[in-house]
Nucleic acid binder design. Structure first.
Length: 302
DNA sequence: ATCCAGGGGTCAC
DNA sequence: GTGACCCATGGA
């Protein structure tokens, strides 16, 4: 049975290619597949697990459901998911105006045009990904994530391929720390992930709960009260999951390297200069951080 | 072999 | 509030 394709008009300043570049980079992400300028991804929905396919054609993103429910409600959910994932409903022209005011950054508005801040809607997944990635190189981080997801996540199969979904908190709350250790998670990472999972299951931590807090400092404080969530992790999760503009992952090694490469700071200790720099991008701080990360892939700079 | 990687916790001042 | 130290493990 064929389902009609969902069509989402592409907004101004959107580049499917740039977004694909970010999703594909040089890493082995187990939560989506990129091939032939298209994306395959499986997600959990309130109506059941869904596998979908995205490609760009004629000024639209075309989304097709390949497996799982395709009733109108589920299709609406999927549409919202994609809009949020790629931040499609944000007018990012003001960000480019900010970039062009700084001679060191102006090139980004041209070279990276249409790159959107790719999100991680599920805050539990975002936090787990942070903990996995703490203080290890990204290549290894993606390996750890794959082991975790292939062991504990559900999956859908289609055309002889397997598409994984990040495990939910209930599953990881019951995972044995020893089993995570055997996957080469450090003792700390295993404890942190287990603890965060149990906090979600107990209702002591949730995306909705964090979103309902009155301001950014309150959200940071609520997150960092949990073991394993420091300022970097809290801000990263707020940036990727709730799209809080101030969620700059302070202390991030890549970000600091990019700031040095652009002559913004001379060394990693100049917090005042960093704050002043981001202060000029009020409302667009996380986009600036995201574009600075993007710039690290430009070899001439590194 | 050595340094580093999309940090965090703890403890002393 | 800040800084030193430890943890932990693969990549280059």
């Amino acid at each position: 049975m064929d389902h009609p394709t969902i069509l989402i008009p592409v907004p101004p300043f959107f580049s499917f290619q740039e977004c694909l570049w970010f999703l594909n980079r040089n890493y082995d992400d187990c939560l989506h597949v990129i091939s032939d300028n298209a994306i395959w991804k499986a997600i959990q929905t309130p109506f059941g697990d869904v596998l979908f396919h995205i490609q760009e054609h004629g000024g639209f993103l075309e989304i097709e459901t390949l497996a799982g429910p395709a009733n109108p409600e589920c299709r609406d959910f999927l549409t919202s998911f994609v809009k949020e994932w790629f931040d499609l409903e944000r007018d990012i022209q003001p960000f480019y105006a900010h970039l062009k005011r700084d001679k060191r950054l102006a090139y980004m508005a041209d070279d990276f045009t249409g790159l959107r801040l790719i999100g991680i809607s599920d805050m539990f997944e975002a936090l787990c990904w942070c903990i996995i990635g703490q203080q290890i190189n990204l290549t290894f981080a993606y390996k750890l994530k794959r082991r975790l997801v292939e062991r504990f996540g559900r999956h859908l199969e289609w055309d002889n391929q397997v598409f994984y979904i990040f495990p939910d908190a209930e599953t990881l709350a019951n995972a044995e720390v020893d089993e995570l250790r055997a996957m080469q998670f450090s003792e700390k990472k295993a404890q942190y992930i287990s603890g965060i999972a149990r906090a979600f299951v107990a209702g002591m931590l949730s995306k909705e709960g964090i979103a309902a807090l009155p301001d950014f400092p309150a959200q940071q404080k609520a997150l960092t009260s949990h073991k394993g969530i420091g300022i970097w992790t809290a801000n990263y999760a707020l940036m990727k999951s709730l799209r809080v503009p101030q969620g700059i992952p302070h202390g991030d090694v890549g970000l600091l390297n990019a700031l040095v490469a652009h002559g913004i700071i001379a060394d990693r200790t100049e917090k005042d200069k960093i704050n002043a720099f981001f202060g000029a991008f009020a409302g667009w701080e996380t986009y600036l951080a995201f574009y600075l990360w993007r710039s690290l892939a430009v070899k001439a700079l590194v």
